[in-house]
Design a binder for these strands. Structure first.
Lengths: 246, 246
DNA sequence: CGTGTTTTTGACTTCAGTCAATTAAAGTGG
DNA sequence: CCACTTTAATTGACTGAAGTCAAAAACACG
């Protein structure tokens, strides 16, 4: 029997199918997308604000985040990305980047030429719709972050971030454990929730004292997701997600 | 000569064309979209978190905003809408609303059945792409709001909100004056920038003392947009907008 | 081991929140 | 047109959550 090497885009394809029913032709087209892979060290930039975008990256392995730098030099992280997510559909469609994209951990990407994406959308409307929906869910997450940063106290903000990450991570691998590791330093968490690293440290220690998380080696381990969720009355509707996320 | 009554969607159509070249057939299809109009009083809700969405509204006249309510009852406004903008393409595509939509001032809407939108996208891919781009720009604005709330001090946050509004308002009517009226109470501004009404009042008085704004009757008048922009080094790249907004 | 992050701590400051009362506007009805 | 109600804006005194600074400890890693 002939074994065909699986495209690294299979996971991405699965994510799309999650949103919209695709047929074999659609699936084949996604998996046949041309790409080159690249592996980056933690913290490496691969898109900077102002860049003209000529390709669209799918995160194959590892974690990444997007950020903005404001006038005074402060950084705000605006989203965190898990494997099999498209990192800059947003930038790609709009041609010029309005934010930076960086790796969190060591990560490998599949870099797809912009034209190939447009071509795919053109020939496979269902795929285009699925991609649109994915960007809409990202927008929903942005809204939740606005509310998180704008209206929740420090402890709740951090807990919310951790919950969201834990749920999204679990959604990738529903059969796995619910506890998980978020590979972010306290400084990065601070930049994601609009606090200072010192204050994040104080709050994390509180969560740690309640046995909800532990910290080690530039990562936070979320040990008791359920209790963490309950403690902040976390609602996952904004993730518009598959059943196991509701 | 036969005069055809113009569709109220002409402005919306123009907005789409701004993003993507459309042909006469596309244009005709947009303008021919079925709709009913509705006029709402200030503060009226027309979508609530959790609603199942069966239609998509275009704001014809007046202003509107979207908001979320968190566990403790606090409200966070996540976006502000101007005439000719689609108010819930986002919700519409995702079927269930993750946030509320309310009018700011008295407003009239064109309510378009969801199916008609899907049909339009289906038959006119260029229109679909233009709509997608519009939702992507909204996402870019969400990111900027995250950075605004997360990393700017109170005065800068408010000034940024005012600048953004002034620019977007001016973009609708480039020949008009740059000064403009934002029909929001100080409490609403507070909910948009993640502050308390009391503190917004203090900051607004500072801006007012510098001659940048005046307040009257539940509205803020932005009198000197250029100086306001300069004072916070406002950059409009995130609006991905037509030349006159850059 | 030594070096550079990352985390932790403590003392101190400040920006923004809270509370509560006052004033000012806008709208209503007689 | 004026009392009457309501909503929005304003003020001042006080509090407190989060920021700042700076130094020490703890890792992680070559």
């Amino acid at each position: 029997m002939h074994v065909k090497r699986a495209s690294l885009l299979a996971g991405f394809c699965r994510r799309l199918e999650h949103r919209r029913e695709l047929d074999d032709v659609d699936r084949a087209a996604i998996v046949a997308l041309p790409y080159v892979t690249k592996t980056l060290e933690p913290g490496a930039y691969f898109v900077r604000e102002g860049d003209r975008i000529t390709s669209c990256c799918v995160l194959i392995e590892g974690f990444a985040f997007r950020s903005k730098i404001i006038e005074n030099g402060a950084r705000q992280i605006v989203s965190i990305h898990l494997p099999d997510e498209a990192l800059d559909l947003q930038n790609c469609m709009l041609a010029v980047a309005d934010h930076n994209i960086q790796t969190l951990s060591r990560a490998t990407l599949a870099i797809i030429p912009r034209d190939a994406i447009f071509d795919l959308i053109d020939r496979h409307p269902a795929v285009g719709l699925a991609m649109w929906e994915i960007t809409l869910i990202e927008a929903s997450i942005f809204r939740e972050w606005i509310a998180n940063i704008g209206r929740r106290p420090a402890l709740g903000r951090i807990a919310h971030l951790l919950c969201e990450f834990a749920l999204r991570a679990h959604a990738i691998n529903p059969s796995g454990p619910t506890s998980c590791k978020l590979p972010m330093t306290q400084e990065q968490i601070a930049d994601a929730v609009g606090l200072t690293p010192v204050h994040v440290n104080r709050m994390l220690k509180e969560l740690s004292a309640s046995g909800l998380v532990t910290m080690r080696k530039g990562s936070v381990f979320i040990s008791d997701v359920d209790r963490l969720r309950a403690s902040i009355e976390f609602s996952a509707t904004y993730l518009h997600s598959a059943p196991y996320c509701g």
